[in-house]
Deep mutational scan, measured.
Amino acid sequence: MTTFKLIINGKTLKGEITIEAVDAAEKEKIFKQYANDNGIDGEWTYDDATKTFTVTE
């Protein structure tokens, strides 16, 4: 398992979430669903070196 981080830079929601997953593709799906469930629609980036997804509205 690898630890992945999501950084949220939303208009109404900001924060960080850290979760373990098998791979980045699995985690991306979970993070995007979390963002969608919380009304966050923005630009996504991924840094493989730090295993960090960022979504910015």
Rank of each mutant, 00 (worst) to 15 (best):
M1W: 11
M1N: 08
M1S: 06
T2L: 13
T2R: 07
T2N: 05
T3H: 06
T3K: 13
T3F: 14
T3G: 03
F4V: 06
F4D: 00
F4H: 04
K5L: 10
K5V: 11
L6A: 02
L6H: 00
L6T: 00
L6W: 10
L6N: 00
I7R: 03
I7E: 01
I7P: 00
I7D: 00
I7A: 01
I8W: 11
I8Q: 00
I8M: 06
N9I: 15
N9G: 04
N9L: 13
N9K: 08
G10Q: 03
G10W: 13
G10K: 04
G10S: 09
K11M: 12
K11Q: 10
K11P: 06
T12C: 15
T12M: 10
L13W: 15
L13P: 02
L13Q: 08
L13E: 07
L13C: 15
K14D: 09
K14S: 09
K14M: 12
K14F: 13
K14P: 08
G15P: 03
G15I: 15
G15K: 14
G15R: 15
G15A: 15
G15S: 12
E16L: 10
E16P: 06
E16D: 04
E16W: 14
E16Q: 07
I17V: 08
T18C: 14
T18P: 03
T18N: 05
T18A: 06
T18M: 09
T18I: 11
T18F: 13
T18E: 06
I19W: 14
I19L: 09
I19R: 02
I19Y: 05
E20D: 08
E20R: 13
A21F: 14
A21K: 04
V22H: 10
V22G: 07
V22Q: 09
V22M: 09
D23C: 12
A24L: 12
A24I: 13
A25F: 13
A25T: 09
A25R: 07
A25Y: 08
E26R: 04
E26V: 09
E26W: 12
E26I: 07
K27D: 02
K27E: 08
K27W: 15
K27S: 15
K27C: 15
K27L: 15
E28T: 05
E28A: 09
E28H: 10
E28Q: 06
E28V: 10
K29F: 10
K29R: 11
K29A: 11
K29S: 10
K29W: 12
K29P: 03
I30W: 14
I30E: 04
I30T: 03
I30Q: 04
F31P: 01
F31H: 00
F31M: 10
F31N: 02
F31S: 01
K32P: 01
K32L: 11
K32Q: 10
K32R: 13
K32M: 12
Q33V: 06
Q33H: 04
Q33E: 06
Q33P: 01
Q33I: 07
Q33G: 04
Y34V: 04
Y34H: 02
Y34A: 03
Y34R: 01
A35W: 07
A35P: 01
A35L: 15
A35H: 02
N36R: 14
N36E: 12
N36Y: 14
N36A: 14
N36S: 13
N36D: 10
D37L: 11
D37E: 11
N38Y: 13
N38W: 14
N38R: 14
G39A: 08
G39V: 05
G39E: 04
G39F: 07
G39W: 09
D41H: 12
G42W: 15
E43L: 10
W44E: 00
W44C: 04
W44M: 03
W44I: 04
W44P: 00
T45I: 05
T45P: 00
T45Y: 08
T45E: 07
T45W: 06
T45N: 05
Y46P: 00
Y46T: 01
Y46Q: 00
Y46I: 00
Y46V: 01
D47R: 01
D47A: 02
D47P: 00
D48F: 06
D48E: 09
D48R: 03
D48N: 05
D48K: 04
A49D: 08
A49T: 09
A49Y: 06
A49F: 07
A49H: 07
A49P: 03
A49M: 08
A49E: 07
T50Q: 03
T50P: 00
T50S: 07
T50D: 02
K51G: 04
K51M: 08
K51A: 05
K51W: 12
T52M: 03
T52D: 00
T52K: 01
F53G: 00
F53R: 00
T54A: 03
T54P: 00
T54G: 01
V55F: 12
V55M: 07
V55L: 12
V55A: 03
T56S: 08
T56W: 13
E57Q: 10
E57M: 14
E57C: 15
E57D: 08
E57I: 15
